[in-house]
Amino acid sequence: MENNRYVIIFILVLTCTVAVLLTFIREATKDQAALNEDIFNKRSILSAIEVNLDKKVSEFSDEEVVNIFNDKFEQVVLDANGQVIEGVKAENIDMAKEKKKPEAERSLPLYIYRNGENVNYILSVRGNGLWDEIWGNIALGEDLNTVVGAAFDHKGETPGLGAEIKDNPTFSRNFQGKEILASDGDFVSILVKKGGAEPGNVHQVDGISGATITSNGVTDMLYNGIKSYQPYLETLRGKAQQGMLQQQ
């Protein structure tokens, strides 16, 4: 038997070497890793308005992504009553943490994309799928009603079934042109319908066959998520209407 002292010293030396080595590598890679994560998140926001960009999101270089955000984006953070919280940027809001808070204390990130005449409002939503969390970004057009585009992601939905919300571009493409308000202005959200949407219905999209729970999860996520933005969107709509009246 080796003596205990040797064993303890060996383990101690090994652990210390390893800890120092890893800390060193981590410190060296930390900033770039944080930047990568940031760009990754920005790309997912951009993919919601992909139709209004001049090329596919995956074709943008990292610098271009950052530049678009600096030049064309306004970032707003709202509280649950629809008031703007000053001095916070939307990209610093961690949706995963916000989801755990009670609804009245949540902060909501809102990205406003301006490109010439074109204005898009991008809302972040988060909910539960079958296995784990799902989330997404929904871009609304200038009328704050028509969906311009949507992008979804998930933590661990079944590949080929629930994971199609991310993997199958057709699913998110179906959201384009749908409307979140009924013709009388009431909020109705968009239903992900099992068995396929009724043709011509602007409040429904096709569900994913075989993934009912994930589809329902998306429906709930959209309803609750967009609803919490409603107070602010209403004030915006009010302002827009007043503006139109004054012009008349």
């Binding site: 038997m1 080796e2 040797y6 064993v7 060996f10 383990i11 090994l14 652990t15 390893v18 080595l21 890893l22 590598i25 981590r26 890679t29 770039q32 890793a33 990568n36 994560e37």
Partner: peptide
């Protein structure tokens, strides 16, 4: 490597390398 703790030593070595892989992928 002391025989009595060799499994833990091996695991520490492996875990370190895997952490390196993880950090590198993030980078």
């Amino acid at each position: 490597i002391p025989k009595s703790v060799r499994m833990i030593v091996q695991l520490i070595i492996i875990a370190t390398l895997v952490t390196v892989v993880e950090l590198m992928l993030k980078y």
